[in-house]
Design a protein around this nucleic acid. Structure first.
Lengths: 109, 109
DNA sequence: TCATTTGTTCATAAATTTATGAACTATTGA
DNA sequence: TCAATAGTTCATAAATTTATGAACAAATGA
């Protein structure tokens, strides 16, 4: 594979680490503060095994840091850039929603 | 589903639209200028059917606009925010790579 | 020491995404 | 009209991701 294609592949892996509803929810939570596994689980709900796997996808993708206290496993964003990128993509989504709504209104007239 | 979960799902769909090596390559190309299908194809290579499908994923995700000239189908970024978000994620990837390299060096000493 | 808490790991099934090639459509130019 | 250009759509197979529950491990506290 060309060097460029390698880079795009790595880039895509980091992007995939944010591309899931639960993972985006976790990113928003961790934007405010570091949290431990059970805190995140109690907020997001669902199975602990599922959350644990998603968190490890995010750590492997380099977007989360993890720190092990004797009692708890703490997770935090590796960089503010992650939350910033997610915010931009959210705004792109909002724009697309508005645009679609306008199209709808136009058709209904 | 709760309203929040719905939002995270839509948000994730837009994020998925950038989370593929070929799609990131297309985003970088379109950051500079609007291009038509065959131009993109000649730069990225691969099958035309594959490119066409990836482009439609991106249009459906709201990150690309498409315009049909009688001769060609032109594609462009729906917003500069898309390229900005990708740039941030690329920088997160670079940071992760550097960090991993440092870890490596530490272990090899 | 033994039960409890706090997660991770594993196997598996289900769902989704991706790649491929063939078939198809629409427009243009000879 | 007929061939060529420019792309889309479709069926299918392969790969990857996701969800689930059970089993496991490590640390704590009674």
């Amino acid at each position: 594979m060309s060097k460029d294609k390698e880079i795009y592949k790595l880039h895509a892996e980091v992007c995939k680490a944010i591309a899931h509803p639960l993972r985006l929810e976790v990113i928003e939570l961790l934007h405010a503060e570091e949290l431990c596994f059970s805190d995140i689980l109690s907020i997001t709900g669902g199975l602990k095994s599922n959350l644990s796997q998603h968190l490890s996808v995010m750590v492997a993708g380099g977007i989360l840091n993890t720190r092990k206290d004797s009692r708890c496993n703490y997770y935090s964003l590796s960089s503010g850039k992650v939350a910033e990128a997610c915010g931009l993509m959210k705004s792109v989504m909002m724009d697309a929603m508005l645009k679609q709504r306008e199209m709808h209104n136009l058709i209904l007239q």
